[in-house]
């Protein structure tokens, strides 16, 4: 693939977005009926399905903790989610992302309410177009909320990148591939807590401060949408006549 023009002459990005603009975001909650909770989240072309089971007792007793629930998280990309077929076996990257996503959710989930149990989160990437880990965090926390598991806040994820020396919000695959830096952030906005912060590439100190500010602004926008989606899943149910 050839490097496209990432920032056009008019200052817009290759897909026509302003640097501080998110991709169109779609969120639906409670899309599956066998799981305790589920959510489908789309950041542009990135599409993530998350399902939550539990809290439940599991046969692997040695894993359980006496004072709180454990969270098990599996991030997985479907074979058709990428340009070339992705092997369904968990890769090094997927194992790492599972851990990173789990750790971004652990601070908000009130696991102490369910000692000796396990909460399972399954995340499937249906279509990957950059920012899958951040969309996964959003989807997983909404699925947890849909399962009725007590949480201190909803966590939302968003990435900030640097392309052609411009800081841009919510980067997609092309910008990630040809850009200079990629910084995924997960935030619990009401608590004012950052639960995930990674940085790939190089940012100066000033750029980092600026990038974090941009990420928090983006996270707040997504947070509003997420809360709205969660509420709508109840308001939608109408009285049958």
């Amino acid at each position: 693939m050839e490097k496209p023009r990432l920032i056009r002459e008019d200052g817009l990005r290759h897909d026509g977005r302003r640097p501080n603009e998110l991709r169109p975001i779609k969120i639906s909650v409670g899309v599956l009926n066998k799981a305790s909770g589920s959510a489908l989240v789309e950041y542009g072309a990135t599409k993530i399905l998350a399902a939550v089971h539990g809290p439940r007792e599991i046969p692997l007793r040695h894993l359980l903790l006496p004072d709180r629930a454990i969270i098990r998280c599996r991030y997985h990309m479907l074979t058709f989610s990428t340009h070339e077929r992705k092997s369904p076996a968990p890769s090094r990257r997927e194992i790492e992302l599972s851990k990173v996503i789990r750790e971004s959710l652990e601070p908000v989930v009130m696991t102490e309410m369910f000692p000796r149990t396990a909460i399972d989160i399954f995340i499937e990437v249906i279509n990957a177009d950059g920012g899958t880990r951040t969309a996964s965090v959003t989807a997983a926390s909404l699925a947890l909320a849909d399962a009725g598991i007590p949480m201190r806040d909803i966590v939302v994820g968003v990435a900030v990148g640097k392309v052609n020396n411009v800081l841009v919000l919510d980067i997609d695959e092309v910008e990630d591939m040809f850009g200079e830096a990629d910084m995924p952030v997960a935030v619990a906005p009401s608590l004012g807590m950052i639960t995930l912060l990674q940085l790939n590439g190089v940012l100066t100190r000033d750029e980092f401060v600026e990038a974090l500010k941009l990420a928090l602004e983006g996270a707040n926008q997504i947070y509003r949408l997420a809360r709205e989606a969660l509420r709508n899943s109840y308001l939608k149910v109408r009285v049958e006549e």
Binding site: I154, A188, P189, R227
Partner: peptide
């Protein structure tokens, strides 16, 4: 009121 996690 209908509330969601994290809502004051």
């Amino acid at each position: 009121v209908l509330v969601v996690p994290g809502e004051a």
